[in-house]
Design a protein around this nucleic acid. Structure first.
Lengths: 341, 341
DNA sequence: TTCTGATATGACAGCGCTAACATAATTCAA
DNA sequence: TTGAATTATGTTAGCGCTGTCATATCAGAA
């Protein structure tokens, strides 16, 4: 006799076994019906489906994944959710995942690489089918885990460094450089920069370096910069602009790490009676809706966050085997002239 | 002899067994070390941890969850990610989940109850420890699944209807009503509304009803409303405002379903030379950063999205057993006077 | 009639881990 | 010294499902 020790009440009482008994078939047949796998007689399928409905069966993917060694989960690691950019990437990921049955498991690092490492470790424990992570800067341990996981890895936003497997995004150095070139071509000469702590947003720092390089190549240099050591926001954009202009009333253009900050700059000017772009030009980054909606649309660089997320998923779904050589997808950017620079 | 049929190469080759062999202990001991469960000799722990590092072991939570019947996953169902409100809720959820080891699995419904049903079904298959879902309006099947899952269920944003288990949010009817009362008290009489298709955002509709009720109680009525059948955005706010004012040049206040739209209204006025609030008052909902940063801060109602997410998690973690009677947490709202109304 | 090849279903083992219950080793009071 | 209590580790049997390899059934061909 088989003495079964019953474990204390488990959450799901209804298992394949019960459905199978009710339908008068074996468990594996129920399993096959539910996964539409293998040949099933029409009558059997109907009986099974009826039983499923009758007992309110909800399959247990945990057990399923363990048995079949694939998980239908994607790990997603984002630095932040308060910066609208990343929810937009997440939207793209969702769009790419639609009708695949794959669910994203989301983690947030707060721009901290140690947190990222812990997060990656714990996400990998779910044996995700793939991992989508922001940026290419990781701790050695993170990188090792990602490499050795064997699953597909997409590193988003930046395509300058060589990725582990897939990179989707744009060249931030180039974007920064082009910003500088564009503004110089439009006649601006006295550049200011109102930004954030360069340690938090690496890509903003790289764009900044590109900008400085463009100025330098044109024989110019940045007149001044003000950096705030707080999260990005429109309010901070106003405040840093105020500080920058207080010290440098003669600037003719201010560049920002993103549109939130730049819109804050515009608002400051409105309040201070500085006419944009006649007295001061303003230039952002991202191409957010809010900038476009301003009475004078914000001049900026359009990154394509949604497309980055979506493309990453598409690339991953292309093949489940990691190719020998990394894949780099440039989703590009466009300078949007707007009316503020 | 035990004839083992080896399955085709699985993703993770390193299992507890290998770690155990290398450390010269049994599997369960390794398991206990990794989960810090039960008494373990210092020396054993060290040997095990060394072995774990040596082979680069990543635990398999799928197997662990199956064995222990708990998952350390929370299902999170949001209607949208393009509306900044929901990423903020998600942030709150993340904050509440920090250092619990619980990961959220996120699904997006696009405000569609059928999609929601499919999503809930597929999230429940991961046997999450709890489910966080937006709103209280679900299909009958969704509700049934949630009720019968036995896990804790938090329904966010709205506390007017009776929840399945936990509701966290605010009374949108009351918020709408208070908006009306507040504006009437400030002397406004000729009300317009520039909103969206009421089918998509149920809570906006309820606020609208509250507003209308307040007007009615004061012997007033809404002069006109314009509804756009597209997703909310600042640009749409400008456009609907333009349409509304074209037909009703005599309005003295326009109320919006959210701040994005309201900011669009402000921008329209700036462009059209309408001075706010002297010629036209503008009133939003949410209390977003962007509204606060305007040269004239937007008058609005502050909902507390972050706190809603965080509180929901706290409530769920309170106890894993669903109490007999539903819990309702009112995270409240505050009317923010601003400078536009 | 026998055989072939589809079509339909089932038996069985095992995915990698943990709960529950041993068992072994150690400590310490009586 | 002995037994009880305490600490440390091991054995066993699953968790609920799916892969693999039978087995059974039934056309239609030879």
């Amino acid at each position: 006799m088989k003495a079964r020790v019953r474990l204390p009440d488990r959450k799901s009482r209804v298992t394949l076994t019960e459905v199978a008994e009710l339908a008068g078939v074996s468990e594996i047949t129920v399993s096959r019906v539910l996964r539409s796998k293998g040949p099933i007689a029409e009558a059997t399928r109907d009986r099974v489906m009826e039983a499923v409905r009758a007992v309110g069966y909800v399959p247990n993917k945990i057990a399923g994944s363990l048995a079949s060694a694939d998980s239908n989960l994607f790990g997603v690691v984002l630095p932040s959710l308060s910066n609208i950019v990343f929810p937009e990437v997440l939207q793209g990921i969702h769009a790419g995942l639609a009708r695949t049955g794959i669910q994203p498991v989301v983690g947030v690092t707060d721009y901290n690489l140690e947190t990222e490492e812990a997060l990656v470790r714990s996400l990998l424990a779910w044996k995700p089918a793939a991992m989508i992570i922001t940026g290419s800067e990781h701790t050695a341990a993170t990188r090792k885990m990602l490499v050795e996981s064997g699953i597909r890895i997409a590193e988003l936003m930046d395509i300058d460094p060589v990725p582990i497997d897939i990179a989707v995004g744009l060249s931030h150095r180039q974007a920064g450089y082009d910003t500088g070139k564009h503004l110089i071509a439009r006649g601006y000469r006295r550049f200011g920069y109102a930004g954030l702590d360069p340690r938090s947003d690496i890509r903003a720092r790289i764009r900044f370096e590109g900008l400085v390089a463009a100025l330098s190549d044109a024989g110019l240099s940045l007149q001044d910069k003000v950096l705030a050591d707080v999260p990005s926001s429109t309010l901070v954009g106003s405040a840093t602009t105020a500080r920058l202009l207080a010290e440098n009333p003669n600037l003719d253009v201010v560049v920002y790490p993103n549109d939130d900050m730049a819109v804050g700059g515009v608002f400051h000017c409105m309040g201070a009676g500085i006419s944009v772009p006649e007295n001061l030009a303003i230039f952002g980054f991202n191409g957010l809706d809010i900038g476009r909606a301003l009475p004078k649309p914000l001049s900026t660089v359009r990154s394509n966050r949604f497309r980055i997320g979506q493309t990453a998923v598409e690339q991953i779904l292309e093949t489940s085997i990691r190719p020998d050589r990394p894949t780099v997808v440039n989703t590009g950017y466009e300078i949007f002239e707007g009316a503020t620079a």
